[in-house]
């Protein structure tokens, strides 16, 4: 019997990510990792792309991981887990190790997933390895000091898309990676947020039991890059969901389904104004960027509603 998704039950689970890691105060990544691992009762083996989560949790000779964990490089969390999973299948088949129903999880940030690791992820997904890839998407290369990635929202100030006198932050809309992964036709793809923990954990459970590759894109606040107080992490994530900047949905065997519909769709401005990375957009001359961003959020939301049969 799987552990009930109730906090009174979950506190009885052993801690899989210990304190003493060196992620920044208020980091969204470790909250996500804890929720993901709490949702899985079976043994897990993890690979981790280079990034904040990787460096901050395993500064030699210390590790915050109470589960088998491997970091290989930046772009290859998916190919590395595919090798481990292949080894597991081979060794179980040859009777060298028992089948313990091990779940294989890869964690990567948006840089390691949307950008440099996309090819490895796509390949591993196409090959059909049984693994769950979790992208914790904080919308920039935070580990190297907040550089823009293809997940960075339009208009955001990063250190390589600075809000300058002439160019007001990032010029492009973000890549829709969740849809790209859905287009792979793998059994399970979802988008989640730690503010909606039960939704996230249910998705993780579906993902690790789907019998094939699964991908979950999880919005992860980075207070250093987003420029908000450290205690706003969850609230700001909730706002991203309620403005439909980050809709919660799943694609199960090709069926698109909205898993959360905000009672009232808030203007994206409410999410933007809480974050220093968008501050320059509130100058009158940049107002049009907010409008463009809103239009794009609306367009993607309508498309999603349509795909989910809600339109």
């Amino acid at each position: 019997m799987a552990t009930k998704l109730a906090l009174k039950e979950l506190i009885k689970q052993p801690t899989r990510l210990t304190p003493g890691h060196r992620l920044c105060a208020g980091c969204g990544a470790s909250i996500i990792v804890r929720q993901v691992l709490m949702a899985i009762d079976d043994p897990v083996v993890i690979t981790n792309a280079t990034g904040c989560l990787e460096v901050a949790t395993t500064i030699y000779p210390y590790t915050a991981w109470n589960v088998p964990w491997m970091h290989n490089a930046f772009e290859n969390a998916a190919s590395t887990i595919s090798g481990i999973e292949a080894a597991y299948r081979a060794l179980v088949r040859k009777g060298k190790i028992p089948d313990r129903n091990v779940k294989f999880i890869a964690f990567g940030g948006d840089g390691g997933t949307y950008d440099i690791g996309l090819q490895a992820l796509s390949g591993a997904a196409e090959r059909g390895h049984q693994f769950l890839y979790i992208c914790y998407d904080n919308g920039a290369y935070m580990n190297t000091g907040i550089q823009r990635s293809s997940a960075t929202p339009m208009g955001a100030h990063t250190t390589t898309s600075p809000a300058g006198k002439k160019i007001p932050g990032k010029q492009q809309f973000r890549k829709d990676l969740t849809a790209i992964m859905a287009a792979h036709g793998i059994p399970y793809v979802a988008q989640a947020a730690p503010s909606h923990w039960r939704d996230l954990m249910k998705k993780v459970r579906k993902a690790v039991n789907c019998g094939g590759p699964a991908f979950i894109n999880v919005l992860s606040s980075c207070n250093r890059g987003w420029r908000h107080p450290t205690d706003d992490t969850i609230e700001i994530t909730q706002l991203a969901v309620d403005t439909c900047y980050w809709p919660l949905y799943e694609v199960e065997n090709g069926e698109w389904r909205l898993t959360y519909k905000p009672k009232e769709k808030k203007p994206v401005e409410e999410w933007l104004k809480r974050q220093g990375r968008f501050r320059h957009l509130f100058r009158p001359e940049n107002r049009h960027i907010i409008d463009e961003l809103q239009a794009e959020v609306d367009r993607r939301w309508e498309r999603l509603l349509h795909l989910c049969g809600e339109a």
Partner: peptide
Amino acid sequence: SACVGASAAG
């Protein structure tokens, strides 16, 4: 990369 993962798996 897959070789590294598989080899680490023994």
